[in-house]
């Protein structure tokens, strides 16, 4: 067990705390999540403290906590991304990574960076945060919500001068954020299956024979989701 502590920004703490309250009303299942630490207590295995703060801030703009349904922080999306980057996805274990690389090739030819996803995140966060400092006189985490959104739009549009090696950074961040929101809780995100509850996806129930009956047309499925480990919500 690491003794390092990683603290969210104050805003992140507040958002995650509020989410805990919201979740308590959402999860009615008898199986508690007692073993799962709060987001604020999570010790990242891949990200540094600086990167962890960035990921918390960025994902909470991609899926904000405000309004109905969980945000990225309540769903513990940063935990998911951290674990993915520490594992086979982060190291591109299944990908063909042999040289030579032409990272500036037509995007139609797909990912061509010599960097693994974990390296794209690490270098991408650093590069983008430098851009934020030059452009806004502030690192990303310290910007207000609107300024963070504008910075992310610039990143998405390719307007921050990212080198070709890093051009997939935003795409990976957004894709992984949605994965962490919607994947089975066994991967660290979608905490309490709150994202599934929110949109009405029943998770791993996987048995719906009677729902083909025209009598069930336009009837909302009444049961909440189950996870692969048997949790219910």
């Amino acid at each position: 067990m690491s003794t390092r502590t990683f603290k969210l920004s104050r805003r992140g703490f507040m958002a995650a705390g509020m989410a805990g309250t919201a979740l308590a009303t959402l999860t009615r299942h008898p199986f508690a999540h007692a073993a799962v630490p709060d987001l604020a207590d999570y010790v990242p295995v891949f990200f540094s403290e600086y990167e962890w703060n960035f990921i918390n801030a960025a994902t909470s703009r991609l899926i904000p906590s405000h309004g109905e349904g969980p945000g990225a922080l309540e769903a513990r999306v940063p935990v998911f991304i951290d674990l993915q980057l520490a594992g086979d996805f982060g190291t591109a274990a299944d990908w063909y990574m042999a040289e030579p690389h032409d990272a500036g090739a037509s995007p139609l030819k797909g990912f061509q960076s010599p960097l693994t996803p974990a390296e794209v995140y690490r270098q991408g966060i650093s590069f983008f945060d430098d851009w934020c400092k030059e452009t806004n006189d502030s690192d990303f985490v310290s910007l207000d919500d609107d300024a963070q959104d504008l910075a992310l739009v610039a990143l998405e549009k390719g307007d921050v001068g990212l080198p070709d090696n890093l051009r997939d950074f935003f795409g990976l961040l957004l894709q992984n954020t949605k994965e962490g929101y919607f994947s089975d809780p066994r991967y660290g995100g979608n905490h309490g299956m709150a994202a599934w509850v929110y949109i009405g996806f029943p998770g791993a129930r996987a048995s719906f024979l009677e729902w083909n009956d025209p009598a069930m047309d336009n009837v909302e499925y009444p049961l909440g989701p189950v996870s692969i480990s048997g949790e219910r919500a």
């Binding site: 703009r61 991609l62 899926i63 904000p64 405000h66 309004g67 109905e68 349904g69 945000g71 959104d149 992310l152 957004l174 954020t177 949605k178 994965e179 919607f182 994947s183 994202a195 599934w196 929110y198 949109i199 009405g200 996806f201």
Partner: peptide, 30 residues
């Protein structure tokens, strides 16, 4: 394949992230 990571079609006016996306997935999933 109505699983939400890969299959959550959204109308053209719903953004791909942010508050508008979050509202859009609730409005349009299913």
């Amino acid at each position: 394949n109505g699983q939400p990571i890969r299959n959550l079609p959204l109308p053209a006016d719903v953004p791909s992230w942010g508050a508008g996306w979050k509202k859009g997935i609730k409005d349009w999933y299913g």
